[in-house]
Design a protein around this nucleic acid. Structure first.
Length: 632
DNA sequence: GCAAGGTC
């Protein structure tokens, strides 16, 4: 018998489809069936026969018609004047085919995609595919802000209609990104290939409205570093003691310009044996626990605390999520939803590592979790779901997997913990008339640091002194110092800047870093981003002619224009044309400077690809000689 | 052979 479903629910990922099935199924549990190796859930809800399953993100993508995809025969400029077409993504045919089959088996579909513009655009992809095979289907939208039973029931009881404005914003973004990226990547690559064969087969010079501003941020810092001129300066250090402990005191002026000045101060005080305390400040300060974890913070902390690269962090987190150890790892949210039972989750960790007793104490008191302010309305912050022993986790996910899992668990417990209390200690002592400063730090209450030692400050406890107390001077000396250039940008700082400028999304930020590495524009060494000569030349020479396409603000400006589509203020095509016109102007300006630009790029390319270049030349020479030999 | 965005 061919089953007919009253309703088919389509989610963005299998996990959500499963949550819908288990939240709604009544009576009984959902039955699992399989089409094209996709898992689907069949169940009853309010006496209706329902089927749910997840497509994995987008099913369709934009591309140019085939005839425009030959780089050599197509002037990249023409890409600004044609409309890309939607195609089925590689690997998405099984979802396409499943939608086609199922469109014959229902007249009602609930679009349960994520509550954001990408989710809405996937909803329209689903609708357009299914309508083609069954024009009678009625479509509703389930809009839910957390994947909990309560939210799911609420969404299903309050269905809305899909919003084309949101979807069109996402489609417009896809179109302009493809057009701009392809046009600039092709022209940059072709201008090199026309003049040189330094680019190995399959390599190209790319441009993208996310990747290039990321490179700019890295190069900008490297140039500041290169331009930096070191300067010598002097400081005075004094060793003082109260008879019990020895303290390091530094001269109150951080920098003394000349040795002579430092020396004259030293001469004035060097025979003094006593220092007098003139001020002693002990101020306590609360340090709040960290905010609930979102993707970018997970990546930044794993980079800083664990020295794991963002891309690997997200990969491992995805695996931990797939196996049900942690919640969904791609989220902007830093605020626990009201529907989440924090105590229940914490209870799972009452025997975790060495922090069990601490966790027991937390759940026996009234907790008020630390809350952030970001909410993507689709996913909760990242938190642990299961307590598994260390050796099991290491066995399956490696040491890095354990370290990341352990961070997620401890971070979660930390957000439920009390603030730490520290005491900042500052003593000012006078040697004759010269002021010296001693600084100390004492941890009064460990608070969340008990479970979260990663950025716990180190203690340096000073005794409690009072004004007019006397200290012995052990020695005073002049220290010669040098001003330091700014360090290369760390990956953690880079992520923070990307967020500040709105470059990329939680799920893609690490991709944009990775693209630059793949293109040999920069490398990451010891957590720091160091540009290659190619990356530097590409950025600086593009910046000289078309700063507008390199500046970190590019993406944000584009985003604001696209946002008007979502708000229904401007027609999508109007925005698409406006952005295309703007970038066409930049494109033309770039071409005017093609000669100079390509010369510079070729020079830099040789440094990056010299090995490969030489190998290729020698291989060709070898071929030539082989042929000659055969002829003889 | 292009981009950036979903997700695996």
């Amino acid at each position: 018998m061919d089953p007919f479903y009253d309703t088919i629910i389509i989610a963005e990922k299998p996990g959500v489809a499963k949550a819908f099935a288990y939240s709604l199924s009544n009576p009984g549990r959902p039955k699992i069936i399989s089409i094209n190796r996709i898992t689907l859930y069949s169940f009853k809800y309010k006496n209706k026969k329902i089927l749910s399953f997840g497509v994995s993100g987008h099913i369709l993508n934009f591309d140019f018609q085939k005839k425009y995809n030959n780089w050599k025969n197509t002037d990249p400029r023409t890409l600004f004047f044609i409309d890309p077409i939607q195609i089925v993504r590689k690997g998405s045919w099984k979802y396409y085919d499943t939608l086609r089959k199922l469109s014959q088996k229902t007249n009602h579909v609930i679009l349960a995609l994520d509550a954001d513009v990408e989710g809405e655009s996937i909803a329209f992809e689903v609708m357009n595919i299914m309508k083609k095979y069954n024009p009678n289907i009625k479509f509703d939208r389930a809009w839910f802000s957390a994947i909990t039973k309560e939210d799911i029931l609420n969404a299903v009881d309050n269905l809305t209609k899909p919003n084309p404005n949101l979807a069109n914003k996402a489609f417009a973004r896809m179109i302009v990104d493809l057009t701009i990226g392809a046009a600039f990547t092709r022209i940059l690559t072709l201008m090199i290939e026309k003049r040189s064969n330094v680019l190995p087969r399959g390599k190209f010079i790319s441009y993208g409205p996310c990747q290039t501003p990321v490179l700019y941020l890295v190069v900008k810092r490297a140039l500041e570093r290169e331009k930096f001129k070191k300067k010598k300066y002097y400081s005075l250090n004094a060793k003082l003691t109260n008879g019990i402990k020895i303290f390091n005191a530094v001269y109150y002026k951080e920098k003394i310009e000349s040795f002579e000045e430092a020396n004259s101060i030293l001469n004035r005080i060097k025979n003094t044996s006593k220092a007098t305390v003139i001020k002693a400040d002990y101020t306590t300060r609360n340090i709040l626990p960290p905010e609930p974890l979102n993707t970018i913070e997970l990546e930044r902390r794993c980079s800083r605390f664990l020295n794991i690269r963002p891309q690997e962090t997200l990969n491992i987190a995805e695996n931990l999520y797939q196996d049900g150890l942690i919640s969904y790892p791609r989220t902007e949210t830093t605020k626990y939803p009201k529907t989440i039972n924090l105590i229940k989750i914490a209870k799972k960790f009452i025997d975790y590592q060495d922090i069990g007793p601490f966790v027991r104490k937390i759940i026996s008191t009234k907790i008020s979790p630390r809350q952030g302010s970001e909410d993507d309305k689709a996913h909760p912050p990242i938190y642990p779901l299961k307590n598994l022993p260390k050796d099991k986790i290491i066995q399956k996910y490696g040491r890095k997997g354990w370290n990341i899992y352990n961070l997620v668990v401890r971070h979660f417990i930390a957000t439920l913990s009390k603030p730490a209390v520290i005491e900042k200690q500052k003593i000012i002592a006078k040697i004759k008339n010269e002021k010296f400063i001693i600084e100390g730090l004492k941890i009064i209450e460990e608070g969340f640091y008990t479970v979260y030692p990663y950025d716990k400050p180190s203690e340096n406890i000073l005794p409690y002194l009072l004004p007019n107390d006397t200290l012995e001077v052990i020695e005073i000396k002049i220290i010669e110092k040098e001003t330091k250039p700014p360090p290369y940008l760390s990956e953690s700082q880079l992520l923070k800047l990307m967020k500040k400028y709105g470059i990329g999304t939680d799920a893609t930020m690490q991709d944009h870093i990775q693209t630059n590495i793949k293109r040999k524009y920069f490398v990451v060494d010891k957590k720091r981003c160091i540009p290659t000569p190619l990356g530097k030349i590409l950025t600086t020479s593009l910046y000289e002619t078309v700063p507008e396409i390199v500046e970190p603000e590019v993406r944000g400006k584009m985003e604001r224009k696209l946002q008007k589509i979502a708000e229904g203020i401007v027609e999508p095509n109007e925005v698409i044309q406006e952005i295309k016109r703007e970038f066409l102007e930049y494109y033309d300006r770039l071409r005017e400077n093609e000669e100079e630009l390509s010369k510079k790029l070729i020079k830099a390319l040789i440094t990056v690809y010299s090995n490969e270049y030489e190998k290729r030349v020698s291989r060709r020479y070898q071929n030539y000689k082989d042929k000659q030999r055969k002829r003889r």
